[in-house]
């Protein structure tokens, strides 16, 4: 699924890197536990999370993830967004909860990963 579709499905706001919204993701993973992200997630996976600190960006960088959706209307501060920009990591924010956002994407065909 293209990130631009994710944006439309979740009526999300793009916080960073809107020039690469045509990039694709194959799966999604929803978690607030960064060690679980590091343990289970591979590249081309979308991360949905309620955490907005700089460790989320670091986690994405280490695990080769290139898009993060912040749920429940959360938005990180400027230096976190700047860090994502440097790593070409797309950031979106939606007013949906983690459950609702995950359900909307799943119902449109974006499946979870196998662990």
């Amino acid at each position: 699924m293209q990130i631009i579709e994710v944006r439309d499905i979740l009526e999300a706001e793009v916080l960073c890197c809107d020039e690469i919204l045509t990039n694709e993701v194959n799966n999604a993973f929803s978690s607030d536990l960064m060690s679980d992200v590091l343990a289970f997630v591979n590249g081309k996976t979308l991360l949905l999370t309620g955490l907005v600190n700089c460790q989320v960006i670091r986690t994405a960088e280490m695990a080769d993830l290139n898009v993060i959706v912040f749920v429940r209307g959360k938005s990180p501060d400027k230096n976190v967004i700047e860090m994502a920009k440097q790593g070409n990591i797309i950031l979106l924010t939606t007013r949906d909860t983690l459950y609702t956002a995950s359900g909307k994407l799943y119902s449109k065909g974006l499946k979870g990963i196998n662990i």
Partner: peptide
């Protein structure tokens, strides 16, 4: 609250 301390660190490193 920062997303760590889930008790997965050492086992992740080993993996």
């Amino acid at each position: 609250e920062m997303g760590f301390g889930a008790g997965m660190g050492l086992s992740n490193m080993k993996k």
